[in-house]
């Protein structure tokens, strides 16, 4: 036993290295629950520092952010019932609304990793929960993966494991949008059936098949599509509608009917 101790003491450099690597890998491999606890403890400090830095850099981008908000306000104004000549007020029931939007500010963002995440300045205290979609006025941004009371962490569209249910607007064919992992403006639409024709400029939107995103949120446009003659399913290069390097304010989508939808999916009717 004493020999063992003296051996470890002599080789302490190696054993300390092993110990630290084990700790580091336990961070890498932690599951969702552990990650949330971890973020809860570290998020307060880093979140506060990131928010403070963000307050500084915000001044530099204020003009562009304002322009965007004005444009969006104008667009929303166009959607008001007053903007239509004929208004059928009977059809607008507020309790029928399916989605609620929570505005939040991006306090940290990256586009140059293989797995990119964003941090938002709002969390569970503001009604944000896991698996909520995040969008901007331009299109889709990502999915909430972790929340703390004050902050939330969003898995960006620019994450090699993030797969989005997409749909080709003109012919309603479904496909999956993935990130190429290279340039942050380009992704790919995979699983396009052989008979579908696609041209540069064709629009890809969210399919609405998931509980996360409503239907029809802009994803991107086709940039290049080379159909291979012998492949059953093809891949198209798309350009994202959102400039992910240029995000200030985003909307978190709360699906108000999610519980009801999930209940239906969990208890399928017994046909036999």
């Amino acid at each position: 036993m004493r020999n063992l101790f003296s051996y470890i003491l002599k080789q302490y450099f190696f054993f300390l290295f092993l110990l630290l690597e084990v700790i580091a890998f336990s961070f890498v491999l932690q599951n969702n629950f552990q990650r949330a606890t971890f973020l809860n403890s570290t998020g307060k400090v880093t979140g506060t520092i990131l928010s403070a830095m963000n307050n500084v850099s915000e001044y530099l981008t204020l003009k562009r952010a304002n322009e965007k908000l004005v444009n969006e306000n104008a667009h929303l104004r166009n959607l008001l019932p007053d903007s239509y000549l004929i208004t059928d007020k009977e059809e607008h029931y507020s309790r029928d609304s399916m989605y609620r939007y929570i505005g939040a500010k991006v306090i940290s963002n990256s586009v140059n990793h293989q797995k990119n995440y964003l941090m938002l300045n709002k969390g569970s205290r503001h009604g944000i929960a896991r698996d909520m979609g995040v969008i901007t006025s331009d299109g889709i941004v990502g999915t909430v993966v972790d929340v703390t009371p004050q902050f939330s962490r969003v898995m960006s569209v620019l994450h090699i494991n993030n797969k989005i249910n997409g749909r080709i607007l003109k012919n309603n064919h479904l496909g999956t949008v993935e990130w190429t992992g290279n340039y942050y403006r380009n992704g790919m639409l995979v699983d396009i059936p052989m008979h579908v024709e696609l041209y540069p400029g064709d629009t890809i939107i969210t399919s609405g098949n998931s509980l996360i995103f409503p239907e029809g949120i802009m994803v991107g446009t086709v940039e290049e599509y080379n159909k291979l003659p012998n492949e059953k399913f093809n891949t198209a290069l798309i350009q994202y509608a959102v400039d992910y390097n240029n995000l200030y304010y985003v909307y978190v989508i709360v699906n108000l009917k999610k519980k009801e939808q999930m209940r239906l999916e969990k208890n399928p009717t017994n046909d036999q």
């Binding site: 630290l20 690597e21 580091a24 961070f27 890498v28 491999l29 962490r153």
Partner: peptide, 9 residues
């Protein structure tokens, strides 16, 4: 950066 452990390791 919100990257779990990769820089540490």
């Amino acid at each position: 950066l919100g990257t779990m452990g990769i820089h540490t390791a």
